[in-house]
């Protein structure tokens, strides 16, 4: 018999972790979306602003802490999710010959594991597309409107040259060059298949959150007759609006930019 108390073994405690990480990831989505919405500004200023934002996001110490918390949450949530899904299955070794689960529950409530797996694959591809490209790939560099290199802090180096990511002026290294993530994003989304993949990822997140948002509150015991209908409605709104706004960006990039 398994020891079912303790910080990790108990079903309920596993769900506290699931809910805490899941709801934290909802907060992360809001922040991430706010950053991404800058991509709608297709002017030079928009491009510059987005690339300055990318520098901020990769160098600011507070953001660093938040980003490690986010990596941890995604990994913990995914591993915990797989363990929970396996435990879920173990409790009914013999299935019904004839069952109508749709009579008493939503499809997304019953398929969080599948939806989560799709989201996980999406996250891996997404990280490869942009995070890896930005950090380790051959990213183009941001130039000023006169075509001069820009440093990470946004200052222009007139007559400077870029070599291996660094800006040189008259042979002296003056700093690191600002990378042009905006152009990476924009050119990636000229590929309709990638746009379709991103839209699919967002649909998976939408269905995941239709159940997940309110479920997270319930797992933590945050429910009462006064607030629960509100949480329910907020959850549906969140699950539709946030992924929708995310999904519009690649479509916009494909069609407009």
């Amino acid at each position: 018999m398994s020891e079912s108390k303790g910080l990790l073994k108990s079903h309920i405690v596993k769900k506290y972790w699931m809910a805490a990480t899941g709801l934290f990831l909802c907060l992360f989505l809001v922040g991430h979306l706010a950053g991404n919405l800058q991509l709608f500004m297709t002017s030079y200023e928009g491009q510059l602003q987005f690339n300055e934002y990318a520098v901020f996001m990769t160098t600011n110490p507070a953001v660093k802490i938040l980003s490690y918390l986010t990596y941890f949450s995604i990994l913990f949530h995914a591993v915990d999710g797989v363990v929970i899904t396996l435990n879920n299955r173990k409790a009914r070794p013999e299935q019904y010959a004839y069952s109508k689960p749709g009579k008493n529950s939503m499809w997304s409530s019953r398929n969080m594991g599948i939806l989560g797996t799709i989201i996980f694959v999406y996250i891996v591809v997404h990280m490869q597309n942009f995070w890896y490209e930005y950090k380790f790939g051959e990213t183009p560099y941001m130039l000023s409107d006169n075509g001069a290199p820009l440093l990470m802090d946004g200052s222009e180096v007139k007559g400077g040259e870029i070599q291996n990511g660094a800006v040189y002026l008259n042979g002296d290294q003056v700093g690191d060059a600002m990378r042009d993530l905006y152009t990476v994003v924009q050119s990636s989304f000229q590929e309709p298949l990638l746009v379709a993949f991103y839209v699919l990822g967002m649909i998976a997140i939408a269905f995941h959150l239709v159940h997940g948002f309110q479920s997270g509150f319930q797992s933590l015991g945050l429910r009462n007759p006064k607030y629960s209908p509100l949480i329910m409605k907020a959850g549906y709104a969140f699950a539709i609006i946030v992924p929708l706004l995310f999904a519009i960006i690649p479509i916009y990039m494909l069609i407009v930019a």
């Binding site: 079903h11 435990n87 008493n104 409530s109 309110q214």
Partner: peptide
């Protein structure tokens, strides 16, 4: 849990 009942997924069924 020790009897073998599963975790709650909050499906509401």
């Amino acid at each position: 849990q020790e009897e073998g009942f599963g975790p709650c997924s909050n499906t509401g069924a």
